[in-house]
Design a protein around this nucleic acid. Structure first.
Lengths: 112, 112
DNA sequence: AGTAGACATTCGCATATATGCATCCGGTTA
DNA sequence: TAACCGGATGCATATATGCGAATGTCTACT
């Protein structure tokens, strides 16, 4: 329509990029500062090649940036706004869960 | 890890839900207020069954809510924070594009 | 009751995505 | 140069997603 929706295309790509629990966890792990592939692999208990692939996805979409230091490659989130967006979405989830609980409380308090 | 990553699972689901240009456009269209399926279908030039499918996805994840009025069903975004999150991501995209332009300006100003 | 309009659902197919495994690459150290 | 370590890639398979076409459901109207 109005927006040539090339932007929407990119926007969707970005969301798709975040549409994986592993990648979400990667971002969460990177909130605390940059980490190497090995660090991430160990922290999230994901095999290295798999981790590498997910990092590649995040890298291609520009979500993360790398810095090479000696033998290791350190990853970090490229734009803090990405973190902010994630926080917002998590808030949405929390609110949804809260509503859900209240509903079940109303509908079936002892609903085993 | 720390976070039982059940949340991460849901978070990823939410992102995946937004990982479609059509659904992004739907949300953008709903920024201006609730709209019926027919409205959306016409506005985005998407066939009705297909639109219905995308709306179902958004509904299942709780991104949108419905209100039935006579024969029509009106959709709206369930939580304004979702819009906010989208705005943030769009800002990220804009910044990325800007950086990209500057880079190409530096690397190859007359690059084809 | 019969018809039409507004949405939803199901099915089948084509395409995309995730994962594990094996392998490969580049820089260090012996 | 050989062996090693941190990462990246390629491949095969299982699974999920998007779309069109046909069909179903519900409501309003005549």
């Amino acid at each position: 329509m109005a927006m040539p929706d090339r932007i929407s295309e990119l926007h969707a790509e970005l969301c798709k990029t975040l549409g994986s629990a592993i990648r979400i966890n990667i971002l969460n792990a990177l909130k605390g500062g940059e980490k190497s592939v090995g660090d991430l692999s160990a922290a999230l208990r994901v095999r290295q090649p798999n981790m590498s692939q997910h990092l590649a996805v995040l890298r291609q979409r520009g979500v993360v940036t790398t810095r090479k230091d000696g033998v290791n490659i350190y990853y970090r989130v490229s734009n803090p706004k990405i973190i902010q967006a994630c926080e917002l979405m998590k808030q949405v989830l929390v609110e949804q869960l809260k509503e859900g609980e209240e509903l079940t409380k109303l509908v079936g308090p002892a609903r085993r």
